[in-house]
Design a protein around this nucleic acid. Structure first.
Lengths: 191, 191
DNA sequence: ACCTGAACACCGTTCAAGT
DNA sequence: ACCTGAACACCGTTCAAGT
């Protein structure tokens, strides 16, 4: 039961919720207003238009969510353990049973003009971080960079596969673990 | 100057054209009708609704486009040459200068209910075909399958990167070739 | 400062009427 | 068989008027 007056944050929270449930297309001002017990006119006091709401919601997601995985991974002592945890975490969250609905929605709408830059920043950080792990494993910078790109590609591509062709991706937790082990084997093989 | 009477194919062609230019969102009945010099009412004679048009356009793309790459690759004599041509062709077409606009639009809207199954079929064929190449290279079936999944993931993920974070992917034709070489090196390394 | 309610534009969809 | 034109629904957007 929200108070009778709404804040911009109430609208972005509702928008993020909608994105998680039905993707960007589910961010519709009229249904959102109904859900919040307000009118469309109220929305336009807080935001210039639907686009501005989407942008605000995505920026909020980026701010709250970007460092989560990296902080988790940083608890590991050595680069190989970090790489192992990074890849298995990230693959579980896309191909596993409790997927990250918002991230999947973002990937599924990567072409959207507001999604693309957010995804670009998040992805560039991930490539940089992963490349750093390969450097810490002793690979020369260029080789480390290529493997970082390949590792992130493998993750993004598997997410795509899990969504578009689920039959092709490892189905059980054990299968996924075996897949991750082989992937790490390929990625850490001597140059 | 089209004849005064339109066929269903005229509409699907116009729809595919729109997808290539602006993605699924660009498939709007009213502007399409205007572009074809007809009215919306004419459209609804040929199709039940906008959804049916999108589905027809995507099926047409699948039919016309699916085997193109595989046929090209099959001209190569041995599995390694096929793999090399497959990966470089497919990476050029997403990260290179003349990208396949429709395929990129499909990947950018992979979440759409009509796009997903088309992408699923195309992708499953690609995984199966690529896994077959690894088997032909002498790898045991399960290992070959994993590498096929990884190869297709690497392609799909690089397409995503090229779109979402262009700064992270190899920019010049030479760089891309070097990247492909390393990728093939990793993928064909002994198990 | 924040919200309502009515209005309008745009596009998807329907359908009776035309050729 | 194929198309027009008018109508309606839905949602984005604007804005004068309320508290």
């Amino acid at each position: 039961m929200p108070s009778s007056r709404l804040t911009a944050d109430d609208w972005t929270a509702a928008a993020l919720d909608a994105i998680g449930r039905g993707g960007l297309a589910a961010v519709a001002v009229e249904p959102l207003a109904t859900g919040l017990g307000a009118t469309k006119g109220s929305f336009y006091w807080h935001f210039a238009n639907r686009d501005a709401l989407i942008e605000a919601a995505l920026l909020r997601w980026e701010r709250d969510h970007t460092d989560a995985v990296i902080s988790l991974v940083e608890t590991q002592p050595d680069p190989l353990a970090k790489l192992r945890l990074l890849i298995s975490t990230v693959i579980e969250s896309t191909a596993g049973p409790h997927t990250d609905a918002i991230e999947l929605a973002m990937l599924a709408t990567a072409g959207h003009p507001h999604v693309a830059p957010v995804l670009a920043r998040v992805t560039e950080r991930r490539v940089a971080y992963t490349s750093g792990l390969f450097e810490a494993l002793g690979l020369p910078p260029q080789e480390a960079r290529h493997r970082g790109v390949t590792a992130v590609s493998a993750y993004l591509g598997l997410a795509q596969l899990a969504h578009a062709a689920p039959r092709t991706v490892p189905a059980t937790s054990t299968d996924r673990q075996a897949y991750v082990d082989r992937l790490i084997g390929l990625l850490t093989t001597a140059g």
